[in-house]
Computed example of a mutant assay.
Amino acid sequence: MEKKVLFIIVLNQTELLDELLLKFNDEVGQAATVIDSVGMAQHLSQLYEAKIFSTIKPLILSDHTENKTIYSVIPEKDMDLARETVKEVLRNIKKPDTGIMFAVPVLFQEGIRD
């Protein structure tokens, strides 16, 4: 079996979702799943809205209220291509409130077409 990785993108700039999925499909050629997500700091800020935390909230939180988490099982050999594709769309992933990406090894897969 060819080595695979689970490639994960947490996209804060949700307005780039369509562009990212189209480019990912064109360049990497793999299917992906998208789920709605929210960061821990954003969630906690809702819990502590009335507390002192709200005074520092603007310093640590962005204006976005949700993220999109995209994950795809891809061949390990395509990981660099996937990373470059994401960077092209996001332009500067190191900028705060843009997103993150990472990959983890896939030990096995079932139900995924090759």
Rank of each mutant, 00 (worst) to 15 (best):
M1S: 12
E2M: 08
K4E: 14
F7A: 00
I8E: 04
I8R: 11
I8Q: 10
I9E: 08
E15H: 15
L16P: 01
L17Y: 05
D18K: 14
D18A: 08
L22E: 13
K23R: 13
K23A: 08
F24R: 06
D26L: 13
D26G: 04
E27N: 14
V28S: 06
Q30D: 02
Q30V: 02
Q30F: 09
A31E: 11
A32M: 01
A32R: 08
A32L: 04
V34R: 10
I35K: 07
Q46A: 04
L47W: 11
K51C: 03
T55C: 09
I56C: 01
K57S: 08
L59G: 04
I60W: 07
D63C: 01
H64N: 12
T65E: 14
N67Y: 13
N67Q: 07
K68I: 11
K68Q: 10
T69E: 08
T69G: 00
T69C: 03
I74E: 00
E76V: 03
E76D: 01
E76Y: 03
K77D: 00
D78Q: 01
M79L: 12
M79G: 00
A82S: 07
R83Y: 12
R83M: 14
E84M: 12
E88Y: 07
L90F: 04
R91H: 13
K95T: 14
D97A: 14
T98M: 10
G99A: 10
I100N: 13
M101E: 12
V104S: 10
V106Y: 13
V106M: 02
F108Q: 14
F108V: 13
E110R: 15
